[in-house]
Design a protein around this nucleic acid. Structure first.
Lengths: 211, 211
DNA sequence: GAAGCCCTGGACGAAACGTCCGGACCGGAC
DNA sequence: GTCCGGTCCGGACGTTTCGTCCAGGGCTTC
């Protein structure tokens, strides 16, 4: 599909993307974003059901800052299903030097983290956590809360109980996430419920024995 | 060095190469080969002391077979020092569709193999997670920014310059404050300007020389 | 005083918000 | 099987908020 894709950027970069996706096996996805429309151009080995044309949701990359670096990361991400990712992004430029696409590689760190934790017991004792004041945005918090619930209950997102969803929504509400614009639909999507249901559950939180 | 490399292929693909080299840390090298001269164009994170201009030694790739695939591997390689590598190669084509370069990613499998071997003997106990910090209220941030500007300029709020207001709005915008619902009117009030002016100044930030 | 710049209140369409309802679905009771 | 309570969904709807626009009016500059 990408090989005869009409978009020249996809034609140019698809070999690299396929190569990376192949090398990293089932634990990495490669995404090509269109900077102009902020949508997915192409995706290899998707970890979430995204497809070309879907919105990119990568507002974190500055739009038109010529002084910004071309390569970001690696930085941490979390998925609603509990997976934790390492991500890098590269700004790809056309012949004129203008940003035309963004390439993102998302690597599932779970297996590597487990291996690293075991190895840490035998190898040199490394420092505990150099994690600085890295401020995480609300979608990260959302993915943490949902992913935490998945892990805590040992239940995949598809078999969440009504109580699971209520608990997640309560935690996000107390964290003030719903003071952010457009937060409710995004959370609803991440929780695999409809917008209506999300508002319904939120109302239930506010009026426990409501009229 | 690769960013301002005179070779257009290096300029085109260096962000991807740097990104991959960064993501895979010290365990992978990324090499860009010139198919015409069979020499190294550029190399990131080299595992052996190769440099641009050195011969490529990749005779295994078929030269001019149009039916051959664009991506090879992963296949196994070994290094003189005993390291075992997983490699993939991608044929990169120019706008005319002619092969112009070959990208190789060489991943040291050693650490991963050790980890995998260890993990094979044990079950995977998941580790607990620390709870992240609480985000400071955005109104506090707003007051900080405005108050800081007052102190920095030694100018009371009523005599703020247009530039003062722009600076404050820019900082708040970069902090993501305006992603919060109802934030604009509140900030406008705090800045002693009208809602219209606030939106006008914000538009100016987004379209610096716009109409 | 005239010209230019900037802020303002008000108005307006567009977008997001929050609520409501009919219908589909599912598991349990009969 | 049929019924039934509970839950979710998609869609529709009215309301609120957003973001833009414009006709004034104050202020500085010439």
């Amino acid at each position: 599909m990408p090989a005869d894709n009409p978009d020249p950027r996809v034609r140019t970069f698809s070999p690299v993307c396929r190569a990376v996706a192949l090398l990293l096996g089932p634990y990495a996805e490669v995404v090509l974003h269109d900077t102009a429309t902020d949508r997915v151009l192409a995706i290899w080995n998707p970890m979430t059901p995204r497809a070309p044309g879907d919105p990119s949701m990568l507002g974190e990359l500055d739009e038109v800052d010529p002084s910004a670096p071309d390569v970001y990361g690696p930085y941490e991400k979390a998925l609603p299903d509990g997976r934790r990712l390492s991500s890098v992004s590269a700004v790809l430029r056309d012949d004129a030097g203008q940003p035309s696409a963004v390439l993102c590689v998302n690597l599932d760190r779970g297996p590597l983290e487990q291996a690293a934790a075991l190895l840490a017991g035998f190898a040199a004792p490394s420092s505990p956590r150099p994690e600085p004041l890295f401020e995480r945005d609300w979608t990260e918090r959302m993915n943490d809360v949902i992913g935490g619930r998945v892990r805590a209950q040992g239940r995949p997102l598809e078999r969440f109980t009504r109580e699971d969803r209520l608990a997640v929504l309560r935690e996000l509400d107390e964290a003030g996430v719903f003071a952010v614009r457009r937060a409710v639909p995004v959370v609803a999507t991440a929780l695999r419920i409809s917008r209506s249901t999300a508002y319904s559950l939120l109302a239930e939180l506010k009026h426990p024995a409501g009229p």
